[in-house]
């Protein structure tokens, strides 16, 4: 009976390119979520649409939300402006990519390595104190620690080096707190105990048992870290002196804040678009991994 019904239904599916397409009413959540999502993504739409606006549309007031006659003028303007830069644009790009990737990878590694004992080594002396300090660090307004941090970087003789751009960001209280919270509940102690009985070293346990089980956590952390460091213009402005050490975020400010800022509005819009694009790509790549991991980690207790 049930089989007969489903067969009759199957026969009524419309065919597109010879395949039966299953048309189902979407889940009720969509009716609520899609309008909210559209509302939420407006700033990205605005940035993209503004990047393609010709100058006369940029100067309209009130600015139209959507571009009417899209043009690539802004991008050519930006490209022309880069000729005036002290060093080739590729140098800024290299600095940005190198600093961001190194920082994010080391950051995730350093934070995860510290989170593992804090979460899983029961009775390790000093744990509550260390964890308390990390939470405290999270709550101290970063605005006032900026100058003392500059003094530290200067005392260490790191000014104007890649180390000055990378090292201060590695001990990330936020990242450690997050990794520890994920390890607390996602990894059953029996799993670690079993690996230990099998003769695995702590290092092996960390790489083979702990990290695969908290893959959603570090993939999310990569998103946070990438966005923060890619957009960061404060560290390169403060910690480096020579033009060859600056990053794209700084170059973009120089390009768009230059003389005659009205004429540069188009370049600024193009710059905003180009700065946002990599973060969107990294987000999509990593978020897809966050969601995938569920299917792969079948070793839950």
């Amino acid at each position: 009976m049930a089989v007969a019904v489903s067969r009759r239904q199957a026969a009524t599916y419309p065919r597109i390119f010879g395949r039966r397409i299953r048309l189902r009413a979407p889940s009720p959540q969509y009716y609520f979520l899609i309008p909210m999502a559209v509302f939420s993504i407006l700033p990205i739409v605005y940035i993209v649409s503004t990047a393609f606006k010709p100058l006369e549309e940029l100067l309209l007031f009130p600015p139209p939300f959507f571009v009417r006659r899209p043009s690539l003028d802004n991008f050519t303007d930006l490209l022309l402006a880069t000729n005036a830069l002290a060093v080739p644009f590729s140098r800024y790009l290299f600095n940005s990519i190198f600093v961001t990737l190194t920082t994010v990878l080391l950051q995730v590694l350093v934070c995860s390595m510290c989170a593992y004992p804090l979460s899983k080594a029961r009775g390790l002396p000093g744990t509550p104190f260390i964890f308390g300090m990390i939470i405290a660090a999270l709550m101290f307004a970063p605005e006032v620690t900026a100058i003392p941090r500059y003094l530290v970087v200067q005392k260490l003789g790191l000014i104007d080096s890649y180390a000055a751009l990378i090292l201060p960001g590695l001990a990330w209280a936020y990242g450690l707190f997050m990794m520890k919270q994920f390890m607390d509940n996602s990894i059953p102690p029996e799993l670690i105990e079993a690996a230990r009985v099998d003769g695995a070293s702590e290092w092996t346990i960390f790489w083979r048992v702990v990290m695969p089980n908290v893959a959603p956590a570090w993939n999310t952390l990569i998103i946070f870290g990438f966005i923060a460091h890619w957009n960061d213009s404060f560290s390169p402005l403060v910690f480096t002196r020579s033009e060859a050490m600056k990053t794209v975020s700084v170059a973009m400010i120089a390009l768009t804040n230059g003389a005659g800022s009205i004429a540069r509005q188009g370049a600024a819009a193009a710059a905003a678009f180009l700065m946002t694009a990599p973060t969107l790509i990294v987000f999509l790549l990593r978020q897809a991994k966050v969601i995938q991991t569920m299917a792969h980690s079948g070793i839950k207790s």
Partner: peptide, 27 residues
């Protein structure tokens, strides 16, 4: 008993002391 765990935490704690704790205490 605990050494290996302190080694795991060492990179973070060293960087944390220099670039976070010292500036916060100074502030």
């Amino acid at each position: 008993k605990w050494g290996i765990y302190y080694l795991f935490m060492a990179p973070f704690l060293a960087l944390f002391a220099v670039f976070v704790v010292a500036p916060v205490l100074t502030a």
